[in-house]
Amino acid sequence: MSEPHDLILAARHVTKKYPASNGRILVANNDVSLNFYRGRTLGVVGESGCGKSTFMRMVVSLEAPTEGEILYRGQDITKLRGEALRQHRQKIQMVFQDPSAAFSPKMKIMDIVCEPLLNFKRIKKGEKEETARRLLEMVELPGDFARRYPHNMSGGQRQRVGIARALALEPEIIVCDEATSALDVSVQKTVVELLVRLQREKNISYGFICHDMALVQSLSHQVAVMYLGNIMEILPGGQVSHGCLHPYTQAMVGAVFDLHMDFSHPIRSIDSEAPSPLDAPAGCPFQSRCDRCMEICKQERPPLREIAPEHQVACHLYQ
């Protein structure tokens, strides 16, 4: 591999299958191998439904892979059970995509934010409100929100509660699943600056799932591009806009709305239909929508190949 970064967690050949209607099988992740390094951010982008959240749920031990292993400092955490699993959980936290589904509506914000701290006896009951206020203020929310209920808040306010809760335990790895998508760009910038500062101070690793290509490339050391459960490209964040090679990554970069675009031109996108994860084609998963598709693409699945330091692509154009 490339530069020697400190590897904390490695997913090795992870596959996840779900049963679907009419006895069929849905392959949500297909042979995914990704690494988390100390103090670095792994961004994950890709089509809605391509398996990003599924992958991260396995990283945080909420689900088990169908095949493959997840090594945390060399130990396969998919085998952990009971107290060992519970203790392990404090090291990896997740900010969920859908905050209202993740919180119990009957709990006050301070109970939600402090729940992990109380579970692991890091604070006493009496310190709850004060701790919650401090954590809320870190994510630019008024401390008084500690006494509110989640349904009395706006979407972006609830999302920041999720971030505050994940930060509370000061874990080694934090997975952010669309953690800033409900924030206005100004608050988003503040939250991202906070995350990056904590990363520098405490050497936290982030897994950052995000649909905003401009944002994800700006804060990720590495970006992984997924499509139909497969990794298509892994590249340094700074190279996404000009150095991406996979036709799917290029299509995504071309579909970004920005303030300086020509508003009179229709936005570019991929027109053809997405294939269903229920019957993924043989060969390249992207073939049905790729305008550079060749004969070999329909027969052979292109393997992920390193074509430059820290840059891997799965595409027959670069074999």
Binding site: T41, K189, M213, A214
Partner: peptide, 12 residues
């Protein structure tokens, strides 16, 4: 001013 831009300022 806070809108993230492709290939613009980076945080890391």
């Amino acid at each position: 001013d806070s809108v993230p831009v492709m290939g613009g300022d980076r945080f890391v």
